[in-house]
Simulated assay, not measured.
Amino acid sequence: MERLLERSLFASRWMMAPIYVGLALSLLILLWVFALELWHLVGILPVMTVNDAVLGVLALIDLSLAANLLLIVIFSGYENFVSRMDLSEHEDRPDWQGEVDFSGLKLKLVASIVAISGIHLLKVFMDVSKYAPDQIRWMVVIHLVFVISGVLLAAMDWIANHGKTLKKAKASQA
């Protein structure tokens, strides 16, 4: 009975596979929005100001970072929780693929969120007159929360890894 339960629970990881397929399909949404944003940018080219150009490029970078974040979640999540991807021989396989554990995934996610938040904040600062001071204050506070959360997550991982290293060193000395 126990073996059947454990095999069933282990097999339940495959219920995550459709979620990762759905995330992969959501890349199409980001691609569509990217194309629309690029089309809009090209459309205003004859009358474009420096601010328009910078804001437009920042929007494209923002979408690119979101798509990168999505790929990291799809690849790492699938490999950590569902199954290994047998692509080690593929010439285009990213170097980090298969080496990002759950801890690394958390740090990459937070770093991407901080980068996206920072770009969004830069876009706000480029057109600060459109926003109320209260809105800007909240955006800065939220960005700082992301930054502090990232630093604390990194510190917790460092402490945990450092503790494991010390424990191994003490075990090998004994």
Rank of each mutant, 00 (worst) to 15 (best):
D134L: 11
I113D: 00
S117T: 07
V73I: 14
M16K: 08
A24P: 01
L58Q: 03
W14G: 01
L38I: 08
L45A: 15
V114S: 01
A59K: 14
W14K: 06
N51F: 05
H90M: 06
A11Q: 13
Q173A: 13
R137D: 03
A11T: 08
M156P: 00
V124F: 01
L9T: 10
H162Q: 11
K130G: 00
V54D: 02
S149F: 12
M85W: 11
M85L: 15
I113R: 02
I148M: 11
V114H: 01
W39G: 11
R93L: 11
N161T: 05
D86S: 11
L152G: 00
Q135N: 04
V124N: 00
A24T: 12
Y20P: 02
E99S: 10
D157G: 02
Q135F: 12
A132D: 14
V73D: 01
A11I: 03
L9W: 13
M85P: 00
M126Q: 09
A66I: 10
K167Q: 15
S76I: 01
I142C: 04
N161R: 15
G163D: 11
R137W: 09
E91L: 09
V114R: 01
Q135A: 10
S8A: 15
V145N: 02
H162K: 12
Q135P: 00
N80L: 12
I119T: 07
M15K: 08
M1W: 09
L41H: 12
F125A: 12
I113C: 10
A155S: 07
R13D: 05
I29M: 10
L152M: 14
I19A: 12
G77H: 04
A155V: 14
A111E: 05
L109Y: 11
I142E: 13
Q135M: 08
D134I: 11
V145Q: 01
S129A: 14
V42W: 12
S26Q: 08
L65Q: 06
W39C: 06
L122G: 01
L23Y: 09
F102E: 14
L63Q: 05
V47T: 15
D134W: 07
F102T: 13
L69A: 10
V54Y: 04
L70Y: 00
G77C: 05
L109M: 14
A67D: 02
S129I: 10
M85S: 09
T165N: 09
N80C: 06
I159N: 03
I159A: 09
L121E: 05
L121W: 04
L30C: 02
L31D: 07
V128A: 11
K168Q: 13
G22V: 06
A35V: 14
V73Y: 01
L122I: 15
V147T: 08
M15S: 13
I74D: 03
K106Q: 13
V145W: 04
V82H: 07
F146A: 12
L71I: 10
P46Y: 10
W32I: 07
L107Q: 12
A169Y: 08
F10K: 14
L5S: 08
S103A: 13
H90K: 07
G98R: 06
G118A: 14
I61S: 05
L122S: 11
G56T: 06
S117G: 15
L31A: 15
L4P: 00
L38C: 05
V147R: 02
F81M: 03
V100I: 15
Q97G: 00
